[in-house]
């Protein structure tokens, strides 16, 4: 009798507990399961696996409480907490996502800034290089201008000096073909002759000195001229000999032979009227044409 009752109570208890185990789960547990299912399909599973693991452990506690004791307050509490743990895992995952997004934006900003700075400094560098090059060019130009100026001044000074020296014993004119030194034929030569008198040689020494000292580079042509009396062929021949005599003498006085040549022009280039004795005297002459030095 006593045993039977004990068995009966045990059976009843077993039946009750199995009835509890198969009873409908409490709303808290249903919510916890659904929330966890949902979350494990979302980004939280990848971004916050630790949080999701904690949530799963909490859900397991709720499930085992439900399996063992059914819809108890403890099961509901565990399920309630499981829902919060799942929600927590999701919120933390979204926070991480936002922080990563912010970090990405900030990194991109830094990269942009670095690019902008690099671009600007490259531009500055290019501008600086350009300025430097311009500067060098300007300095070179300035130096070239100064050189050029100095050369011109030098040349002008030399020419002026030569002209001044020569003006003392001969007529000096600046013409398009160069500086023309006119020596009177009557001073240099006796009539119909082309050998130079000692007085003529002295005069030519000065010319040679002036030409070598003041202007060592210019080319020159010695031109012989006669008046129109006598045969043209004779005058041509005479003027050639006279020019040659002057040229040869100047070479002996130190003027380089390749700088100076001679040319007889007869009476072809009169400078005065051949009708008068004075005119004829002016036409009888030797001209030394100093060609401008190539600069």
């Amino acid at each position: 009798m006593k045993n039977l009752r004990t068995i009966g109570i045990s059976a009843l208890t077993l039946a009750m507990s199995s009835a509890c185990a198969t009873a409908r789960p409490p709303a808290d547990l249903v919510t916890a399961r659904a929330r966890f299912e949902d979350a494990s399909r979302g980004a939280a599973a990848k971004l916050n696996p630790a949080g999701m693991h904690t949530a799963k452990e909490q859900l397991d506690l709720a499930e085992s409480s439900f399996a063992a004791d059914g819809d108890t307050q403890h099961t509901r509490d565990q399920a309630y907490v499981a829902t919060r743990k799942t929600e927590l895992a999701v919120v933390v995952a979204r926070t991480l996502q936002a922080q990563q997004g912010e970090a990405g934006i900030v990194d991109a900003m830094h990269a942009d800034q670095a690019r902008a700075v690099a671009h600007t400094s490259a531009e500055l560098g290019r501008a600086k290089t350009q300025l430097n090059v311009q500067n060098v060019a300007l300095v070179a130009q300035g130096a070239a201008l100064n050189d050029e100026k100095a050369r011109r001044e030098e040349a002008e000074k030399r020419a002026a000096q030569a002209a001044a020296d020569l003006a003392r014993f001969a007529t000096v004119k600046q013409e398009a073909r160069g500086m023309v030194i006119t020596l009177s034929g009557s001073v240099l030569f006796t009539s119909a002759k082309w050998d130079l008198s000692p007085a003529a040689q002295l005069k030519l020494n000065d010319v040679a000195n002036a030409l070598t000292k003041e202007d060592p580079v210019s080319k020159m042509v010695v031109e012989g001229h006669t008046d129109s009396q006598g045969a043209a062929a004779y005058n041509q021949d005479l003027s050639q000999h006279r020019a040659q005599a002057v040229r040869d003498y100047l070479v002996t006085r130190g003027i380089a032979s390749d700088r100076i040549s001679a040319q007889g022009l007869g009476s072809s280039r009169s400078v005065a009227d051949n009708a008068s004795p004075e005119g004829r005297a002016n036409n009888r002459r030797v001209e030394i044409v100093v060609q401008p030095a190539a600069q």
Binding site: D77, R84, V92, T95, A98, Q99, G101, E102, I105
Partner: peptide, 23 residues
Amino acid sequence: IRANADAELAVAQAREKSAHLAK
């Protein structure tokens, strides 16, 4: 136990808001 779960969640939700604002 329930209060702790809710409070912990409230902290995380407040942090999420801050992270979004920062972004």
